[in-house]
Design a protein around this nucleic acid. Structure first.
Lengths: 116, 116
DNA sequence: TGACAATATTCGAGTATTCGAATATTCTAT
DNA sequence: ATAGAATATTCGAATACTCGAATATTGTCA
């Protein structure tokens, strides 16, 4: 696979590599929302939202549509939603094992991580 | 969705947010490889490979298995491979409209956050 | 036109990532 | 025990990211 393509891929992942940006993309699952609606739903600073939206635009994850005074954002390609669905299962599976580990850890005294 | 879960998700994406790490994961599509084999195939520095492998381990993307002097890495959950497949289609679709941008990007120096 | 609302950009400080060089660890074989 | 091979970690400098404050831009309406 070409270098440029791999670079492109990594930039998509970079685009999603922030909790706020994941929240934005997930909020747009159901369809487009204006910047203001996103700010309200996520409860974040206006400037911060705009910066994250700029990142998502730059990485081609979102597209925007201007309607008068408002700017509506939406997910550019529904394949990304598919990815989010798969990852949801993935995270659920991972979570159960992580939770088990955490339970285990909180039950045992903190010690240099030996094997039994 | 919980904050912690979103944090967890973003860390997975962060784990994949580097071309070298994507190359590593893709090299492991066909099954496990030792660190040395990865280094040879990808043509990268030993220390650098080890650092990236540490990131992928920390993000729970890879698991490793020691066999004598060697350490074999493999993808932890096959859902990730599914994700890579979907993204392959995604990237192909995007490519037609993005080729020009990529050419441009690879031709111009990277200059975000430059000196002031 | 001027005031105002919605969104975007710039700035600077704090933090995190990335790299190669150097060093450390772990395992095997003698 | 010692050497050597495979892998991991530490260090420091360069680069990139993130945030809120301040400012700029764009569109609407009276």
């Amino acid at each position: 696979m070409g270098d440029a393509l791999r670079q492109f891929k990594s930039e998509i992942f970079q685009g999603l590599a922030h909790p706020t940006r994941i929240a934005i993309v997930e909020a747009l699952r159901g369809g487009e929302l204006s910047a203001g609606q996103l700010i309200e739903r996520l409860g974040i600073e206006q400037a911060n939202a705009s910066q994250h939206l700029a990142v998502l635009r730059a990485k081609q994850i979102l597209v925007n549509r201007k309607a008068g005074n408002l700017v509506y954002y939406s997910i550019r390609d529904k394949a990304l939603i598919e990815v989010l669905d798969i990852l949801r299962r993935y995270f659920n599976a991972q979570l159960s094992t992580t939770v088990d580990m955490l339970k285990q850890a909180s039950r045992e005294p903190r010690r240099s991580g030996g094997k039994r």
